[in-house]
Deep mutational scan, measured.
Amino acid sequence: DTLHVTQDGKHIELRGLSEEEIKLVEELLRRGRKVEEALKIIEELRK
């Protein structure tokens, strides 16, 4: 699936995420994380 995010005035499209990963990214962003940080966390969880 694809998640569309706008952060720091930039539109970012995150592709290839599972539904659970999207929920996790959304939660991390709500808690003030940056998109880059959220993606690093997803990458770690995929290992």
Rank of each mutant, 00 (worst) to 15 (best):
I42F: 02
I12R: 03
R30F: 12
G32S: 02
T2L: 04
E20C: 08
A38Q: 00
E36Q: 13
K10P: 06
R30P: 00
E43W: 14
D8M: 02
L28N: 02
E43L: 12
L17H: 01
G9M: 02
A38I: 15
L39M: 13
L24T: 09
E44H: 09
R46I: 03
L28I: 07
E20R: 10
I42P: 00
K10H: 12
K10G: 06
V5K: 03
V35W: 05
L39N: 02
I12S: 03
V35M: 06
S18M: 06
G16C: 06
R30D: 04
H4G: 07
H11K: 08
I22D: 02
K34S: 13
L29T: 03
E27A: 15
E20S: 12
E37P: 01
K10I: 15
H4N: 07
E21L: 03
R31Q: 11
E43G: 06
I42Y: 01
K23E: 11
I41H: 08
I42A: 01
G16D: 12
L28F: 13
K40T: 12
E36H: 12
I41T: 08
V35I: 11
E36G: 08
S18K: 06
Q7R: 01
V25K: 00
E21S: 01
S18T: 14
E37H: 09
V5E: 05
S18P: 01
L39Q: 04
R46G: 02
L14M: 05
L17T: 01
L28K: 01
L45E: 05
I12P: 06
G9R: 01
L17R: 00
K10E: 13
E44M: 11
L14S: 03
Q7S: 10
K47G: 12
V5A: 04
G32M: 04
V5I: 10
L39K: 05
R15S: 12
H4W: 08
L39F: 07
I42G: 00
V25G: 01
E21K: 00
I41L: 11
E26Q: 15
R15Y: 15
E36M: 13
E37M: 08
E26N: 14
E43R: 08
L17E: 00
D1H: 15
T6Q: 12
R30N: 06
R46P: 01
E43M: 12
R30A: 09
D1L: 15
A38T: 07
E13L: 10
L14W: 03
T6R: 02
R46Q: 04
L39Y: 06
E20A: 12
R31H: 08
Q7K: 03
E37D: 11
T6A: 07
E19A: 14
H11E: 14
I41V: 11
G32N: 05
E37V: 07
L3K: 04
I12G: 03
H4T: 12
V35E: 03
R33I: 14
I42S: 00
H11A: 07
D8W: 00
R33W: 15
K23P: 04
R33E: 06
H4Q: 09
T6Y: 10
T2A: 05
S18V: 05
L28Y: 13
H11V: 15
Q7V: 12
H11T: 14
R15L: 12
R33A: 13
T2R: 07
K40W: 14
R15C: 04
Q7M: 04
T6V: 14
V5C: 10
D1I: 07
I12T: 04
L29V: 05
E36T: 10
E37K: 04
E21N: 01
K34L: 13
L14Q: 03
K10D: 11
T6F: 13
K34G: 10
E13Y: 11
K47A: 14
L14F: 05
E13R: 03
R33N: 08
V35N: 01
L3A: 08
R46C: 03
E26M: 15
R30C: 05
L29I: 11
K34I: 07
E20I: 11
E20H: 11
G9F: 02
D1V: 05
E37L: 07
H11F: 12
T6C: 10
H4A: 07
E20K: 12
V5Y: 01
E27D: 13
H4I: 15
H4E: 10
I42N: 00
L3N: 07
K23H: 11
E19P: 14
K34N: 11
K23F: 10
R33C: 06
L24S: 04
K47Y: 13
I12Q: 05
R33L: 14
G16V: 03
V25M: 08
D1P: 15
K40E: 10
E26W: 15
L17Y: 10
S18W: 05
R31T: 09
E20Y: 13
D8S: 03
I12W: 15
R30Y: 12
L45R: 07
E44Y: 14
I12E: 08
R33Y: 14
L29G: 00
R33M: 14
L39V: 11
D8Q: 03
L3Q: 07
D1K: 06
K23V: 12
K23R: 14
G32Y: 05
D1N: 14
R46T: 02
